[in-house]
Design a protein around this nucleic acid. Structure first.
Lengths: 117, 117
DNA sequence: GAAATAGTGAAGTGCACACTTGACTATTTT
DNA sequence: AAAATAGTCAAGTGTGCACTTCACTATTTC
């Protein structure tokens, strides 16, 4: 599938990597420099920089360069993007899942009724 | 980063694809067969089958083959995996973000104080 | 101002992913 | 039983991704 990537795509993609989640976990305790973040990760500075770029692009992290040090912190924007998406979809799914309990093995499926009229 | 993929990785990865989210949206209205799902997607049956495999592996979709038709529906498991992860992490982040309002431009960063010794 | 520190940029590598084709199986329908 | 329908399997293709190395710049510290 092609087309310009939506923000929610990028948020999910960013969170789908355990290294990036580890970075976010570090930042949850407070702001950190790039090398400080790299320490426990066993990665090159370059690699960490690339992860930070991805996290910044989707609004999960905000960074600011002070002197020669880049300071990184959590950005709420990305999380509200995620929140909004989940809220919108949970509504639909939960309603459906409620009915599961009631309909379970009730109708075999509306699937068999696909016949061009 | 190597190692065996955790479930939450697979959930995020699954949701990071707009085609798979479109499949979930279709399933939100009720169970559907593979070809029915493929219809609006402009994809081969094979491709849709592969997406379904991914969705099934991380507990977002449950499928059952009846006759020659595979019936697909939403599975709550994957969503509670996601929910649990978000709950656990929102707690930490929100606490941090609360303090942002209070500390904002207060201390430049604890970053500069990394000096051995 | 020389040396250490913090990070950036470009280019390359290997693997994972989305997707296709084409041949095949299993079930319905007529 | 022949023909159509629903899906599956194996293999291949191009692209994107995580990560590295190496050369380089900007800032501190001594």
């Amino acid at each position: 599938m092609s087309g310009p990537k939506k923000t929610i795509d990028r948020v999910f993609h960013a969170l789908g990597d355990s290294t990036r989640r580890a970075i976010l976990d570090q930042l949850a305790t407070g702001p950190r420099s790039v090398s400080r973040l790299a320490g426990p990760l066993a990665l090159t500075l370059t690699a960490v920089g690339q992860h930070l770029q991805i996290l910044e692009d989707c609004g999960l992290v905000r960074t600011e360069k002070i002197g020669r040090v880049r300071s990184c912190r959590i950005d709420p924007t990305g999380f509200s993007t995620l929140d909004r998406w989940i809220q919108m979809h949970r509504a639909l799914w939960d309603r459906r899942l409620d009915q599961l309990g009631k309909l379970l093995d009730d109708s075999p499926d509306e699937v068999v009724s696909i016949r061009p009229g």
